[in-house]
Amino acid sequence: MAELQFREALRAAMTEEMERDENVYLIGEEVAEYDGAYKVSQGMLDQFGPKRIIDTPISESGFAGLSIGAAMMGLRPIVEFMTWNFTFVAFDQIVSNAAKVRYMSGGQASIPIVFRGGNGAAGQLGATHSNSVEALYSNVPGLKIIAPSNPDDAKGLLKSAIRDDNPVLFLESELMFGLRGEVSEAEDYTIPIGEARVAREGDDVTIVAHSKSYWLAMEAADELAKQGVEATVIDPRTIRPYPIDAVIESVKTTNRLVIVDESQPFGGIASEVGFQIQRECFDYLDAPVERVTAEDVPAPYAKNLIEAWMPSVDETIAAVKKTLYM
């Protein structure tokens, strides 16, 4: 094990995969000479040169589409978006091409590509820069979506994503790039896509939360423990395919579920998980499924407003208590 920042874990994953397979390249805005807008790719230009670490103009639609084409020809691109907010100008490439070409061609073509970058709100950045895109993209069949919460998962899952023969969307967070954690140094360390991690076990309630929200859930669980409430916390790590079985298993013992999800509430990840759980666990539930999400308005700038807008530890605790009729 080594202690790495989240960004270093991502870099390690990309570096190892690029050393392993010469068809892997990294492309995006400021990834090469600037060392990455958030320093994820720091030093990679020196190691791999400009053929494989490729700076682009601000042309997301162009370099996303170009890389989809390259992937159809057998390359394995890693496309870095400065943040996922800027993928909306590349939406068509991701949704119409990356997700659908294989299906439309009756399985003739495949698109082994990773799209990655920071997702979700990152402080006071205002409405255009605070989107959580998992709900939007997970609505589209044909895309795998990963949203890890810690450096170890980031490394193991990014390596799996790069090796996957399908389009994979990898959601990071500007607020987590500096997060430190123990990361496996095992040779060829990969984590299978689609497996949840049970981070904490308790009998009273299940809380499921991915990416930054996972840390809220853990904090809430610690606080609840002081009040005598023991929560199971599940980090799904993957949004599509969603590891719903792990949640079902847990809810069958705790009989209560709270979903923390920074997406907006209407048609969000929480809506989908809530639906599946009421269908699969109807007889086991002792309370309606609760969710904690962003507010159903665009992200505001003012400090107090964005704090109120974001899912919080307090809201999570309140939601848990509601399921316990406390």
Binding site: F86, F88, V89, G126, A127, T128, A302
Partner: peptide
Amino acid sequence: CSRGKGGSMHFFDVEKHFYGGHGIVGG
């Protein structure tokens, strides 16, 4: 100028015919 909702990137003053302040390059 935007009631604290916009921040630096999203200044608006429609009365003065100033229509923002837009965060997405080219948008």
